[in-house]
Amino acid sequence: MIRPEQMGYLTRESLAGFHRRKLTTGVTILIMSSALLVLALFVLVALNLGMMLERARANVDVRVFLVEGLDAGRTAALQHPFVAIPGIREARFISKDQALVELRRELGDDADVLEVLEENPLPASYHLELAAGHRSPEAVDAIADELRRWPEVEDVVFSRSWVAALGTWARLFRWGSLFVSVVVLVAAVFVISNTVRLTMASSRRVIEVQMLVGATDTFIRTPYLIEGMIHGFLAGALAMGVLMVGHRLLEVRLEGLAFFTPLQMGGFVVFCVTLGLLGSLAAIGQYLRLRRGA
């Protein structure tokens, strides 16, 4: 148990390392924040990729072209069976005439070319909107396959390859960033652990005297644990700050670039503090074991 009268001493001791070794402390925080910056950057890119993917999937344009010669009654009656299929949220009918109007609008000034046509070659179609959770390439494939079997359906067209490629890249990126994160995390813990070990080595006489006069392990450890947590906090806050500035600068060019929410930023800093704590624990454990010759 640590008593209130010991708190002042423990706080002073925790900060003593920063005061005594300004350069080492500065370098440690810089190295660690660089590592954490890489980590945060990967998480942020993964986050943005995920959001882009979700947006892209929301816009998956599934068009069901109907066979020629269906009467108006039958085409209109298809709306209900389409919506009844799980995963289809909405089905909008686009008649031959509407299709031509849309094409004319899309062509703009070049719409004159349509004048040469004697009759409207565009088929009637349904524009399907998929429900969230049914926008993955596999789900879209399944729906398209089913619809193709319907006699009224001529063809089903959707922007499959682009969505699938984006999905693959996002998945690859997630695995890649997981790997890089693990490497970066181990490096960050190692850097902190080394710095705390340096502090402990330079305080070995103090630790020796503490053990001699009956200090508990908790009392001996506390200043170094606090030191590691402060390292983690400063490095995490610095990394987040740099990332924030970078995001502000990029946001001007890339609209809609997402950033962490305040809660996520807080979580990241808490995570960095935990890393600092882990680094210190490793250093202290090793130092005390060596000291005791166990």
């Binding site: 148990m1 010991q6 005297v209 200090a215």
Partner: peptide
């Protein structure tokens, strides 16, 4: 085995501080 950067008083008081004497 004294702490070189602390005064005589602090060296002795240290043993009391460590065990939490008010």
């Amino acid at each position: 085995r004294l702490l070189e950067d602390r005064s005589v008083y602090d060296n002795v008081a240290f043993a009391q501080l460590v065990v939490g004497v008010p």
